[in-house]
Amino acid sequence: MSKSTLNKMTLETEGETHVIVTRRFAASPEAVYRAHTDPKLIQQWLLGPEGWVMPVCIYEGRPGGKIRYEWTKVDGSKGFFITGEILEMGPEHRIVHVERMHIPDPTPDNQVETRFDKDGAGTLMTMRMTLPDVQTRAMMLASGMERGMEASYVRLEGMI
């Protein structure tokens, strides 16, 4: 199997308010967990599409700890930021946190549970988001639409 097949990300909705993301990594749960909890490492990869950097990355890795990620375009033009708080860490490799995006008004809190489970020689990461209603319900748009929005529906289906 090719690496891309093995490491394919999945993104699915669950119920009315959840989105589940899974991804496999060729590293131990300890390593993947560390890459998610060490701000110096987070800063290197959590950058989204090409052309963005994260000049500010605060991750206080303990229950009650604060999260703040600030992204800007490479050329320094304005960007946006996320703030959050860590609710639980552990047992084992599990994190529960809430986050909100500021664009610039804060979006409703998104609660995220992230697990890192041993999967053969690697790790299966599972991220379960309890989405702000607005987004989740936006996803619902797809299933509520008919005919005239078929193209949109098909595309949404493919994405979610």
Partner: peptide, 30 residues
């Protein structure tokens, strides 16, 4: 409507891109 579609696609692509970078970070950690 299409702008919303695109935004969702961007989210997904952004996430995929992030995890590809994470693969490299993990390889470097090893």
């Amino acid at each position: 409507i299409e702008a919303m579609d695109e935004w969702l696609a961007m989210l997904r692509k952004g996430l995929e891109k992030s995890y590809e970078r994470l693969d490299d970070v993990l390889a470097a950690m090893e």
